[in-house]
Amino acid sequence: MQGREPHPLPDTGSLHGDLIGLANVVLAAFSDPVVIAAERAEVSGILQRAFARGELAVQADPALVHAAVLGTTFAWIFLLGQPPSPELAARIAGLTAVGLTGGS
C-alpha cells in the first residue's frame, strides 16, 4: 500500500470552509475506488505469495483481510486514540497472520 500524495487544499476564506475541504479530501481518499482497488490488489498479491510459499492452507479473501487490517488500524488510532507506530504495524500483522494461519 503505497503512500498517498497530499492533496492541496484551497483557502476558502473561512475555518468552516477549509474544514469542509479537508473533510472532503479525507472522505474521497477513503472511498476512492481506484485507491481501494490498488490496495486490494496489493493485499491479493501478499496472500497469493503466502499461499504459494505454503504459509496459507487455503486462499484467503483479499477483501476480508484488507478490511481486517484497515479496521483494526482505524479503531486503534481513531476510536481508542492510540498513536500509530512500527510496533502497532507488527502487532496488527501478527494478529492478522494468526487469524489466517490458525497460529501455525
Rank of each mutant, 00 (worst) to 15 (best):
R53P: 08
T72R: 09
V98R: 15
R40N: 02
L95M: 15
L88M: 14
A29L: 14
A60K: 00
S14Y: 09
Q2M: 10
L80G: 04
L27F: 12
A63M: 07
W76L: 03
D61C: 02
L100N: 05
A28D: 06
D32H: 02
N24D: 13
S85W: 04
L79S: 12
S44L: 12
A28Y: 08
S14K: 08
P83F: 01
Q82C: 04
R4V: 14
T73C: 09
I20A: 13
A75F: 08
L80N: 03
I92C: 03
L19H: 06
L56H: 10
R49S: 09
A28F: 04
S31Y: 10
Q82N: 11
A41Y: 02
G71R: 01
W76S: 01
V25Q: 00
V25N: 00
G94T: 10
A41M: 01
G45V: 09
L47N: 00
V35Q: 03
E39A: 03
V35M: 00
W76V: 04
V35K: 02
P83Y: 04
A97E: 13
E55P: 07
L88F: 07
E42T: 12
L47Y: 03
G13V: 02
E42M: 09
E42D: 12
T72Q: 07
H7C: 12
D32C: 04
D11F: 04
G81R: 07
A67N: 06
D18M: 06
F74V: 13
A38G: 04
L79F: 12
I92D: 02
A63R: 10
I46E: 06
E55V: 12
L9T: 02
V35E: 00
A37Q: 01
V98Q: 13
L15T: 15
L70W: 09
A50T: 00
P6K: 13
G21C: 01
H66W: 04
T73Y: 11
L9M: 07
N24Q: 15
D18R: 11
S85M: 08
T73E: 10
I46F: 07
A37N: 05
I77H: 12
V58P: 00
I92W: 04
P84G: 15
E39V: 04
V25T: 01
H16K: 14
S14Q: 10
E55C: 14
H16W: 15
R53A: 14
I92V: 15
L100M: 06
D61I: 01
Q48W: 01
H66P: 03
T72A: 10
A38V: 04
F78P: 02
N24S: 14
F30A: 11
R91G: 14
V98C: 09
P8S: 11
L88V: 12
P10N: 15
P6H: 05
V25W: 03
A89Q: 15
R91T: 14
G103Q: 11
